[in-house]
Write a protein that binds this DNA or RNA. Structure first.
Length: 136
DNA sequence: GCCAACGTTGGC
DNA sequence: GCCAACGTTGGC
């Protein structure tokens, strides 16, 4: 199983919105960047993804699960989208600032390239962040 | 194929 | 609201 990080602007589509969908999956559409698209295509059903809030909060707030591999984006079929479902909330948000400060997280893509909207997360980074945030 | 110009993103 | 960083576009 691979780990990922998905960015969202909470005032557009936030973690609460995904949580509210419960067992219903949401199409992760709107990705218009080749690097991000390639990561979407590398996703497998069952992979986990951190849910990151940019602009407001600037923190990892929850864990989502990939429920469908990449397929044409319904809003623009020349691009791809996966389906995601809320999995667990974190006990507390793990902020970008914390990732910057943490010696094991300074190499994160989130820290090095915060603009990339779909990112890979290493096993080690995943363990550190879930330990920091705590799984509910 | 290079690179300058432009647009977008996101942290501050 | 500003600006730095990055990606994309288009002229050459």
């Amino acid at each position: 199983m691979a780990y990922w990080l998905l960015k969202s602007e909470p005032d557009v589509f936030g973690w609460d919105h995904l949580l509210a969908k419960g067992a219903e999956a949401e199409e992760w559409s709107g990705i218009r960047n080749y690097q991000a698209r390639n990561f979407l295509r590398a996703m497998a059903v069952g992979d986990r993804a951190f849910f990151y809030h940019s602009n407001i909060g600037k923190a990892i707030v929850g864990v989502a699960r990939i429920t469908r591999t990449a397929a044409p984006d319904s809003t623009n079929p020349t691009w791809d989208a996966v389906m995601v479902q809320a999995d667990f909330a974190l006990n507390r948000p793990v902020t970008l600032e914390e990732c910057r400060q943490h010696p094991e997280l300074v190499g994160m893509v989130l820290v090095k390239n915060p603009r990339l909207s779909v990112q890979p997360v290493t096993d080690a980074e995943w363990q550190v962040i879930t330990r920091l945030g705590g799984i509910v």
